[in-house]
Design a protein around this nucleic acid. Structure first.
Lengths: 261, 261
DNA sequence: TTGACGAACTCCTCTAGAGGAGTCATGAAT
DNA sequence: ATTCATGACTCCTCTAGAGGAGTTCGTCAA
């Protein structure tokens, strides 16, 4: 439909035609003329409107897709991407007081927000840690660690993958090395084992997802991920767990509260 | 150069040719066969090697560029992207004890790491806040705020843009509304004005940059940004400042330390 | 009413060209 | 020694096609 008022090309501009076209559509999205979920005019319509070759149109659409503004659906059309409801992860989500109810942080949060949480593809292995993990745990890289990998879903939609690394010396033979780590999760188990947790350090990076991550999290093109690595320290200063999680950046906002001390 | 050992296409695969080619090159990068800064074989070489049309090669290279793995330089070639030195931002960087030396956080940190810090395009305006900012500051959206925009650079490379919003009622006529806010920055000024800072709340998002941000931060394609919004609260519970900053995600790692309480 | 079929529409992949423009090394002219 | 032109090489933009495959929807037969 020619309902969408797109400007004409500026032949005097030295900006490439496909960029100009991308600019027009981006403008329409940013100004709200095209709202979330709306269909962008088809390649054929845009060819017609601008009088250029199909490839030129496709290049323009490619730009927008790379910016995460649109998604193409084979056979249906190109649509303005809609953003899922955002989960806000508070910095105190692993505080002891939240653990005492006996629910894992993810389950409690999600149910609180009215979603149906589930956990997926739990895999427990015992491995030699990467140099990075070994250093964070303060162990030699030939010492073994127990790895707990899992994927979190809300209403069946994957939102996060996580892998915890606990020195095998601590975890072996305990419920931490079982698929179901019991009420309160592994932090509760660690405290029962006598490691009173003192503080966490979280390291946050953002980057484009790897191929596996795109698959595991069903990510749309142009969506970066948060890569968060949390290290848990016991009161004796010893690191007892490192947990690496990858989250879709458009499903999450991370919240931290800090003293001004 | 045929030095780079690339596999042949798998004609039985239903994976598109350009994706297979992208996979091969991505593998080479991930396995370290192609290191940072290395030149990817030219379009002509890849055409030759795979026996496909130029556009097919360009599509493959486009994929990698979108993933932030490579950058093309017109007339020179395509190169594996090299990552700038990473700045680690500690969560306590705005704590009072760091402020007492009289240096702004950014300057002190950068000099400590041996870089030459500078600040750029400082603009001070008085405006009506967006609904979001007004809500965070707990003021009506018709109340004015003083906006301090600036851009931070290290060795001339832009790394971060920031805009602070302070209720005009507080900032007007003070040094906060001057380009040079004086020793210790605006947090020091706020405390001198009697607003003893109690805590900060930081909200972190990650997304692809807008066009302006690409320009302002000289971002390579395929690099997401952190969008961090910090709200400063005084001891009386009042929000006295909101600061929004946009940072290149491959120049920063954010660090937070949290009590396990 | 239901279900199978097909036409029309969508985006996806790929080909084979063309001219343009930036970079760099070489070699000639100064 | 320096400057400058040249040509080879690079990626960039755009054209004009072709066949493929997924989606939607109306038609027609059961």
């Amino acid at each position: 439909m020619a309902e969408l008022p797109l400007p004409d090309l500026d032949p005097t501009s030295d900006r490439a035609v496909f960029r100009q076209i991308a600019d027009h559509i981006r403008d329409a999205i940013e100004r709200g003329v095209l709202a979330e979920g709306d269909k962008v005019p088809s390649e054929a319509q845009l060819m017609q409107h601008y009088g250029v070759a199909r490839m030129t149109i496709r290049n323009a659409l490619q730009v927008l897709q790379g910016e995460g503004l649109t998604v193409a659906e084979h056979g249906r059309g190109v649509f303005v991407r809609s953003h899922p409801p955002v989960r806000r992860l508070a910095s105190d989500r692993f505080a002891r007081r939240h653990r005492e109810q006996g629910k894992a942080a993810f389950i409690a949060e999600t149910e609180g927000a009215g979603g149906k949480p589930s956990v997926d593809s739990i895999k427990i292995t015992e491995e030699r840690p990467s140099a990075d993990i070994a250093e964070k745990l303060g162990i030699a890289s030939k010492d073994l660690v127990v790895c707990r990998s899992r994927r979190y879903l809300i209403n069946g939609q994957p939102v996060e993958t996580a892998t915890s690394y606990i020195p095998a010396e601590i975890a072996r033979g305990t419920r931490i090395a079982e698929p179901d780590s019991g009420p309160g999760g592994i932090y509760a188990r660690l405290e029962e084992l006598g490691f009173r947790l003192d503080h966490f350090v979280e390291e946050i990076r953002s980057r484009m997802p790897l191929r596996d991550e795109v698959r595991a999290l069903k990510l749309a093109p142009g969506v970066p991920v948060f890569h968060l690595v949390r290290t848990a320290y016991a009161t004796d200063g010893r690191a007892v767990e490192v947990c690496g999680t990858v989250m879709s950046s458009d499903a999450y906002v991370l919240l931290y509260e800090l003293p001004a001390r």
